[in-house]
């Protein structure tokens, strides 16, 4: 089984576009969209969902006013500044509450209960050449790392069921908990960067994180012609880090059109040079040529 995550550190470098293109090339594949708080890949791959599950992201405290004696103990103990006092009444700031439950434990009158956050969903669906697992983290809910784990675990199950030996993971931006969850026990990482000062900065940070895991790492420089000097600088840097640059993709109007029409580039313009480049990436990344 090969599990490949497509990551970038910086958002908007073209992760999902490249993920979609690789997914449509595969003879058989399970795709996992791990960017659970701004999932987009389903817009292109249009899975027909046959499974929808509730995800409980955690709990939030709630204070029953009638039982509260205003002793203030909950506020003293809360380390997240999640208890506020207004007009003599204590209440929970939901967005700040981390769900640790300590306030409920210290409350002498049992006025605080914990309420499940269960508005998030995850889905499994059929796509043309396999399965797709994706999720929707309800706005403002946390613990996206845990949801990423669920999506990935289910993707493995689907891959086993349909006997697919490939899982493609569209990763979240950043380098925090959902990315760390994405990285655990995969084989390969495809980093997608762009030759901008911020792309370079973020590439260095994600590479430092990725290097803590034993993974095969590959690099694609997208929009390589918007800053040729920076592209060269990234290539030199990659040599030093022993990361192969397997493709340099120029900025192209065709790419923009494919995105606007919610199509994978290899479906939208199969004869284009861009599609040839994606096929070349496939060969290096997946066929190890």
């Amino acid at each position: 089984m090969t599990e490949i995550a497509i990551l970038s550190g910086k958002g908007g470098t073209g992760k999902s576009g490249i993920s979609a293109a690789l997914a449509t090339l595969a003879p058989k594949v399970v795709v996992a969209d791990c960017d659970v708080d701004a999932a987009n890949l389903h817009l292109i791959l249009e899975p027909r969902n046959y499974l929808e599950k509730v995800y409980t992201s955690g709990q939030k405290a709630h204070i029953a006013v009638e039982k509260c004696t205003s002793c203030g103990k909950c506020m003293d103990y809360c380390r997240f500044d999640a208890i506020k006092l207004a007009n003599g009444e204590y209440s929970v700031v939901e967005t700040a509450c981390d769900g640790c439950k300590l306030c409920a434990r210290v409350c002498p009158t049992g006025a605080i209960t914990m309420i499940d956050q269960n508005e998030s969903r995850w889905f499994a669906g059929a796509i043309r050449n396999g399965k797709m697992v994706h999720a929707r983290l309800a706005p403002g809910e946390d613990n996206s790392g845990k949801l990423v784990n669920l999506v990935r675990d289910h993707a493995r199950k689907e891959a086993h069921d349909i006997q697919s030996d490939l899982i493609l993971i569209d990763g979240p931006p950043g380098i925090g908990c959902p990315v760390i969850s994405t990285l655990s026990s995969i084989n390969k990482v495809l980093l997608v960067t762009e030759p901008t000062v911020s792309g370079m900065h973020d590439l260095k940070r994600i590479t430092e994180l990725v290097s803590q895991y034993k993974l095969e790492v590959f690099l694609v420089i997208n929009k390589c012609d918007i800053n040729p000097e920076m592209t060269e600088e990234i290539e030199k840097w990659a040599v030093g880090k022993q990361i192969p640059v397997i493709s340099k993709i120029p900025f192209s109007q065709v790419w923009v059109e494919a995105m606007i029409n919610c199509k994978s580039i290899v479906d939208w313009a199969p004869e284009s040079e861009l599609s040839d480049q994606i096929r070349a990436i496939w060969k290096k990344l997946i066929d190890n040529e």
Partner: peptide, 14 residues
């Protein structure tokens, strides 16, 4: 702000 709509985004916009 950080991207997304989960905790880092909330921590900023709130």
């Amino acid at each position: 702000s950080p991207p997304g709509t989960s905790c880092p985004f909330i921590a900023t916009v709130e």
